[in-house]
Design a protein around this nucleic acid. Structure first.
Length: 213
DNA sequence: CCTATGATGATCT
DNA sequence: GATCATCATAGGT
């Protein structure tokens, strides 16, 4: 790596690769979130890959809709969706454009701005839980639908970016089935995390919901 | 530590 | 009407 580039945002060509290459390459890197309140930085420890219309687990599996439109656009943009009536989740679109692949950012360690994150995550009993799970990560970083479509490669002042930093050593990357994904998408070992990291979320298998009256 | 369950609403069929 | 890339809480071990 060229000296002095560690805090340079990743550029679009980083994301314009197959999602299964990009996802593990994000582990250990720093996600930067700039808000009116201040700056937060998070070291990514857990991600999941979703491979567009080829992937039964992907929101894009049944084609382009208003919700998943951003996934079909250029790589390096944020895809933020609202789920379970309460939560947001943050993804980064991967290439090539039109494939609708993306990486769900599932967990990380807050390294800068923990005081801001604690205010948004009042139920967290330890700092390790501030961003332990995709909706917790989005809440801690104040990521909502207003950031859907944001370009995360827009430069050092963008509301979202990922620094080049140094990815975690490949020996420390683990992979396994994706959390909460069932059906034909379940077997893919497309969840990636850093071995033994205390901020990684617990695995939960897909549970078919019971009928409600 | 663990498992079970309710909350809450956008999205798609 | 069913599903959902989830979380907080309650209560058992």
């Amino acid at each position: 790596m060229i000296a002095g580039t560690e805090r340079t945002p990743l550029t679009r060509n980083f994301f314009d690769r197959p999602v299964l290459e990009v996802a593990p390459d994000l582990l250990g890197r720093t996600l930067v979130r700039r808000t009116d309140q201040g700056i937060l930085e998070l070291r990514l420890t857990e991600v999941e890959a979703y491979d567009g219309p080829n992937d039964p687990g992907s929101h894009a599996f049944r084609g382009r809709t208003p919700r998943n439109d951003v996934m079909f656009g250029p790589p390096g943009h944020a895809y933020v969706y609202f789920t379970y009536g309460m939560w947001h989740c943050l993804n980064l679109v991967c290439g090539p454009e039109g494939r609708a692949a993306g990486v769900l950012l599932r967990a990380g360690e807050i390294r800068v701005g923990a005081e801001l994150a604690r205010k948004r995550r009042l139920s967290a009993r330890h700092d390790k839980e501030l961003a332990k799970g995709p909706a917790r990560l989005a809440t801690a970083l104040d990521v909502g639908r207003s950031l859907n479509g944001t370009d995360a490669c827009a430069g050092p002042d963008a509301p979202l970016s990922v620094l080049t930093g140094t990815p975690v050593l490949p020996d420390l990357v683990r992979s396994g089935p994706r959390t909460g994904v069932g059906g034909d998408g379940a077997p893919h070992p497309w969840r990636f995390w850093i071995s033994d990291d205390p901020t990684v979320s617990p695995y939960r298998a897909h549970q078919p919901r019971k009928r409600r009256t």
